[in-house]
Design a protein around this nucleic acid. Structure first.
Lengths: 296, 296
DNA sequence: GAGTTGTTATACGTTTTTGTATGGCTGAGG
DNA sequence: CCTCAGCCATACAAAAACGTATAACAACTC
């Protein structure tokens, strides 16, 4: 089996991600004929048809779909390598890629990262906001802030504490609908919730007398949900510390529905050797601990 | 940060593995000036010094050492990609890479794989014999036979059963030393054991009244240990099913020291879509079950 | 239906990369 | 001490890859 050029794998990954030769060429800083030739050469080397050509783009074959996770793993590793090289091990300089949930990344981390940036101007932060936790080992990110315990080995993880959640609605919603006074009264209300099944959602449905049909607003994006609650679309869960910032939000059934999630910071243990990784890890742990501490 | 050519990463991985530009060039099927230029270009792009040149080869800097795991991750993913492309998903054809311990790979698997090869001549088997279990997710192997429960997510694992171990020595050893009749009499004997600390070794030391100093023969290779016991060097643990094949081996303290290990077959769940992967997985599971079943 | 924007495919000149052929250097073995 | 085998660096010609320009086609907008 003739080992193919790794550059061709990169072209494959780009075409699979972007959906066409032209788009992949733009993403890679190359031209469309070049990417087209690389794909053709790769097909020749592998002895496999990867795409069916069409004027509105390429259509990946089953084989190409099978190859995609491997190509993405290569891309993740390549990114991790470039980041690792972006600063000497002993310097507070270089790039650090952080993954966190959308809520945490947009509502909680910014002030923490701002302090870090002031203290260490040489550190460049890249944020990846997603609810998928799968990618620390693959190198898609260096440090993760997660609401589930990191189960994987070879990870340095620290549990920071727990975030408490409560049910909230905006005044504008409560102007039309009386606030529920008990769990039972939730039955008729509009609820802002998730589109896809998640462990969090299953736990929620187990404890609340609501049905899926009551989720009158659904969005995969937690930030969109938060915005929807703030806009008065319906009732939903918000972290207390975030809800407190908006005086228009009213807590419902206070104390009747205790809900909390653990919060962890994790990174690959190999990265402890790097000063900027340790600094960022510690800044996140310390900053999140301050966020969790109840206000005076 | 100018994204570097992935081919240069490949050159970096090869130079780190092989130790010199010339050796890397041979491994890659290129020439020494080419690899040298690629490394120089990579250093320029990353803005980092990777190697200190010397007449007896290159010496990697600290930075290069930090980059190595990422480069290896890329190499593993590239290999997995090439294997995935080596046969259509629906065909019993292509390459499958199996990792197992040395003992299992050399003593147990061959007949199982021989049956598989007869039934499906299109499947090409690559074996990696090592005691490190870390590499299924990274793509360094497709299927693993392991003596520890696979803890990682995204893995399809099946527990086959348990292998029972016993203490054995060869007749030629017992000709000079009387066979121990109790655990206490083990104290003076020569023991064939492991060089490095392993979970297995710690468990062993906990249960046996022996000290590290009694390990008169140490080897990291389990196969070397097995050969040493067969040659009469000393006493050691062997799987019953393997020991039974050599009439010169005598079991010691039979029944007094029950020792067993679970055995699992695992692969990444993405690979279930491939027919040759499923076939190999099932052949391993079935063959190992037959190996574990006690003879009539 | 004409025009715009998207796509892939092909032809050709140029740039870049690669290989071959060197030379110089160090360390091991006779 | 000398030779030999390993290594890296450099010079130059050959080969491969790249970009530009262009054609052909589909879909969507006006």
């Amino acid at each position: 089996m003739a080992e193919a050029d790794w550059s061709h794998y990169r072209a494959l990954e780009a075409v699979l991600s972007e959906g066409s030769l032209s788009a992949a060429a733009r993403a890679l800083g190359l031209t469309q004929p070049t990417v087209g030739r690389q794909i053709a050469e790769l097909e020749r080397r592998l002895g496999v048809v990867l795409f069916t050509r069409s004027p509105q783009g390429l259509h990946p074959t089953d084989v190409a779909r099978d190859l995609r996770p491997h190509a993405q793993a290569m891309a993740a590793a390549a990114g991790a390598l470039a980041r690792a090289a972006s600063g000497g091990a002993g310097e507070a300089r270089g790039t650090v890629r952080i993954t966190a949930s959308e809520i945490v990344g947009a509502e909680v981390l910014p002030p923490i990262l701002a302090r870090l940036a002031r203290a260490h101007p040489g550190i460049v932060i890249e944020q990846v906001l997603s609810n998928q936790a799968e990618d620390l080992l693959r190198g898609a990110a260096d440090i993760a802030v997660r609401m589930v315990a990191p189960s994987q080995e070879a990870l340095t993880a620290r549990k920071i504490g727990v975030v408490r959640l409560g049910l909230y609605a905006h005044r504008s919603y409560l102007a039309h609908r009386p606030a529920p006074q008990s769990l039972e009264e939730m039955a008729g209300h509009a609820i802002v919730g998730f589109d896809h099944e998640t462990p969090f959602l299953r736990e929620l449905l187990r404890r609340l007398p609501v049905s899926r049909e009551q989720f009158t607003y659904r969005a995969d994006s937690d930030l969109a949900q938060l915005a929807a609650i703030r806009a008065g679309v319906g009732i939903g869960f918000i972290q207390h510390a975030i809800a407190r910032r908006d005086p228009g939000l009213v807590e419902l059934l206070a104390g009747q529905l205790p809900f909390e999630l653990g919060i962890w910071v994790a990174m690959h243990e190999d990265l402890r050797a790097s000063r900027r990784m340790r600094l960022t890890f510690d800044a996140l742990a310390e900053g999140l601990a301050g966020y969790l501490a109840p206000p005076p």
